[in-house]
């Protein structure tokens, strides 16, 4: 047996499982009875407070609603997910075809000029008419 009795702090530590490591409590009847009395005091503050049945019932209802919502969310999201997948697949697979240039003999000279201007704009976005204006400002 330890030479001295345990202090209150030792007994408090023992209540929480971190008391002195020796077997003093098993061997010292006095300390053990103090320890038992102290443990009994704890029940004063750890007694479960009443929680109203209405509150618990409302909480259960909320849980059931959330369980239901989770189920529905999964079912509702499934078609949206499939549609999104299809859209992504379509974007990957789809290649826009380039429009063929119109055959020249089908066009009148004016239309041919217009076509040539439009295709020319792909290389040079400035219309030809602008070149005359630019020429006015060019250094001599």
């Amino acid at each position: 047996m330890s030479p001295r009795h345990w202090t209150d702090d030792d007994l408090i530590n023992a209540i929480y499982g971190v008391g002195p490591g020796d077997r003093h409590l098993e061997e010292c009847a006095e300390c053990r009875s103090r320890w038992i009395a102290m443990r009994a005091r704890r029940t004063l503050v750890t007694a479960e407070p009443e929680v109203s049945n209405d509150f618990l019932a409302a909480q259960r209802r909320s849980i059931y609603q959330r369980i239901e919502r989770e189920g529905w969310r999964g079912r509702r999201l499934a078609p949206a997910f499939v549609a999104l997948l299809a859209l992504l697949l379509a974007l990957i697979v789809y290649r826009p075809a380039t429009a063929p240039a119109p055959s020249e003999d089908l066009l009148s000279p004016d239309a041919r000029q217009l076509t040539s201007d439009i295709y020319g704009m792909e290389d040079n976005p400035e219309p030809e008419a602008i070149q005359a204006i630019h020429a006015l400002f060019e250094p001599e």
Binding site: D8, L11, Y16, G17, V18, M38, R41, R42, V45
Partner: peptide, 22 residues
């Protein structure tokens, strides 16, 4: 767990002393 408990009890020492001594 013991280490956490020991620190917790140390921090709550005053409240626990008062609880167990009334």
């Amino acid at each position: 767990v013991k280490a956490h408990m020991f620190r917790a009890v140390s921090k709550l020492r005053q409240e626990l002393r008062d609880l167990y001594s009334g």
